[in-house]
Design a binder for these strands. Structure first.
Length: 413
DNA sequence: GAACCATCGGCTACCACATACACCG
DNA sequence: ATCGGTGTATGTGGTAGCCGATGGT
C-alpha cells in the first residue's frame, strides 16, 4: 500500500479509502467508488504524504504536507520547534467528487481534473457537497458527498460546545497540545472523536444520530476476555449503571445498542496495557458478550465523562496489531504511544503486576487463536467483486443472465 | 419437566474471474 | 541469474441453506 495506486498500479496514489484499505489515485477513486451506492458511501481522505500508507489526519500549513496522526505526532512533537506549526484538519469525503469539489473541501487541494465532472456526477447529476453544518448526521440513502463538519473545540471544553446537537466532533487528539487549527469549515468524519457529557440531555439528538456516529458495528466488542484479563467480574458495571453512567451516555434503557457499545468499553485490548489498569467495566449484561465479540475495524470511540472524571475507551486494536496499523484511528495510537490521558480509577498497584502480565499473556494467546475481522487483502479484487453481476448472490459468467447488477441494480431478464 | 414447533441468528458453500504465485524451460 | 510462459491457488461479496439456540405452547 502506498505510493502507487492499489487499483491501477500505475498512477501515484493520492487518497486513502478506509473501507477498502486501499490507496488510490483520483481516477481510480472515482471509478471504484462510483460503482454502486454502497461504495459511494466509503469515506476517503488524503493519503499521508510522509508514510504513504495511512489516511491523512491534518495538513501542516508550514510544511505543506498532509500527515496521518502518527506522522503528525512524530513531526510535531511538543519537544520540537515544529509543534507550533499551524495545522488544519483534513476532511474525509464520500461519493465521487471532482477535483474541483475536492478543492472546496480541502482549500489546499489542487489537482488537474482532466476528467472534468466526476463520472457519477455526470451519470446521476446528483452529486453535491453538503455543507449543512447542522446536518452532521448523514442519511446514507441521500446521494450527497458527506461533508461532515468538525467543530473545533478546546481540549477541556467538553460540555459547552455544540449544545444544540449535544455532542461534538473533534479531530484533535485530546491528550496532545491542540494544533493551531486554521480556519476550516469542515472536519474529518472518521477521525472524529465524539465526546459526551453524560449528565446532560441532548435535545435534538436522536438515537439514530447517536448510534450512527458511534459506528457501533465497527467498535471492537470483546467482552468475554474481561474476566480472564482483569481477574474481576463485571459487578462494577451495575454500580455505574445505577449511577446513571450508561443511561446518561445513551439516554436510553434499551441496552441492545448500548450493550454493544459499552461492551466495547470493557474491551481493553492487550496492546493497550495502560488501559488494562485504567478502565472500569462500564456495563453489565455480560450474557450478550458472546454475541458481540467480533472485532470489526479499527475504530475507536473515546468518551470523556467529565462529570465523573473518568473516561471510557473503545478500542478496536487487536493484540497482534501494531501501532502503525492503527495510527489512523485517533486515540488508539494515543493509547499505544503515551500515557493514558485519563485518571485511572484504580491505581497501578491495585493489580499485582505479575498477575496482570499473566492475564495479558493469556489474553494474547487466546486472541491469537481467534480470527476477528475480515481484512481485504486485495482491494482490486474487492473492487471487481463489488461490480460483478450475480444470481442469488453468486457470481455469474460475463454475458450470462443475471438478477443483480451492482452497477445498474436492474434485472437482465 | 418433556416434547413439539416456530423463529432467529450464525455460519458456510457457492459462484466467476482477475491476480498472485510456483514451477519449468 | 533473469525472463517469459504455463498451470494452479487464492480471494472477493451477496445469497441460500443448514443448524443450533431460544422461546412459546
Amino acid at each position: 500500500m502506498g505510493y502507487i495506486c492499489d487499483f491501477c498500479g500505475d498512477q501515484p496514489s493520492l487518497v486513502y479509502c478506509r473501507s477498502d484499505a486501499a490507496c488510490l489515485c483520483l481516477s481510480c477513486d472515482r471509478n471504484v467508488h462510483s460503482a454502486n451506492a454502497l461504495s459511494k458511501r466509503h469515506s476517503r481522505t488524503l493519503l499521508c504524504e510522509r508514510c504513504n500508507s495511512q489516511p491523512a489526519f491534518v495538513r501542516c500549513a508550514e510544511e505543506k504536507v498532509s500527515l496521518c496522526q502518527n506522522c503528525d505526532w512524530m513531526g510535531h512533537d511538543a519537544s520540537t520547534s515544529n509543534s507550533t506549526h499551524k495545522r488544519q484538519t483534513i476532511n474525509s469525503y464520500s461519493g465521487c467528487p471532482s477535483s474541483g469539489e475536492l478543492s472546496s473541501i480541502w482549500s489546499f487541494f489542487s489537482q488537474p481534473d482532466s476528467a472534468g465532472e466526476s463520472a457519477c456526477e455526470q451519470e446521476l447529476g446528483l452529486m453535491s457537497i453538503s455543507e449543512n453544518i447542522e446536518n452532521t448526521s448523514w442519511d446514507p440513502t441521500v446521494n450527497t458527498i458527506s461533508h461532515n463538519i468538525a467543530v473545533v473545540v478546546e481540549v477541556n471544553d467538553d460540555c459547552n460546545v455544540d449544545k444544540g446537537s449535544g455532542w461534538t466532533r473533534t479531530s484533535i487528539p485530546e491528550h496532545r497540545p491542540a494544533p493551531q487549527l486554521l480556519d476550516q469549515a469542515a472536519g474529518s468524519t472518521y477521525t472524529s472523536l465524539p465526546k459526551f457529557c453524560p449528565q446532560t440531555k441532548y435535545p435534538g439528538l436522536s438515537e439514530d444520530d447517536l448510534y450512527d456516529d458511534f459506528n457501533i458495528d465497527e467498535v471492537d466488542l470483546n467482552l468475554e476476555n474481561y474476566e480472564e484479563l482483569f481477574g474481576v467480574t463485571l459487578n462494577h458495571s451495575e454500580e455505574l449503571l445505577e449511577n446513571g453512567g450508561i443511561d446518561s451516555l445513551f439516554g436510553t434503557k434499551d441496552m441492545s445498542a448500548a450493550d454493544s457499545t459499552c461492551q466495547g468499553a470493557v474491551a481493553a485490548e492487550g496492546s493497550s496495557i495502560g488501559l488494562v489498569n485504567a478502565i472500569q467495566p462500564a456495563c453489565s449484561n455480560a450474557a450478550s458478550a458472546d454475541s458481540v465479540m467480533s472485532n470489526k475495524t479499527d475504530s475507536i470511540l473515546y468518551f470523556t465523562t467529565k462529570h465523573a472524571h473518568s473516561s471510557l475507551s473503545f478500542s478496536g486494536l487487536t493484540g497482534e496489531s501494531s501501532a502503525g496499523d492503527y495510527q489512523d484511528c485517533g486515540a488508539s495510537s494515543m493509547l499505544l504511544m503515551g500515557e493514558p490521558p485519563w485518571c485511572p480509577p484504580c491505581t497501578e498497584s491495585s493489580i499485582p503486576s505479575a498477575t496482570r502480565s499473566d492475564a495479558v499473556m493469556r489474553y494474547k494467546e487466546k486472541k491469537k487463536t481467534r480470527k476477528f475481522e475480515k481484512r481485504v487483502r486485495y482491494a482490486s479484487r474487492k473492487a471487481r467483486a463489488d461490480v460483478r453481476k450475480r444470481v442469488k448472490g453468486r457470481f455469474v459468467k460475463a454475458g450470462d443472465a443475471y438478477d443483480y447488477d451492482p452497477l445498474n441494480q436492474s434485472r437482465s431478464c
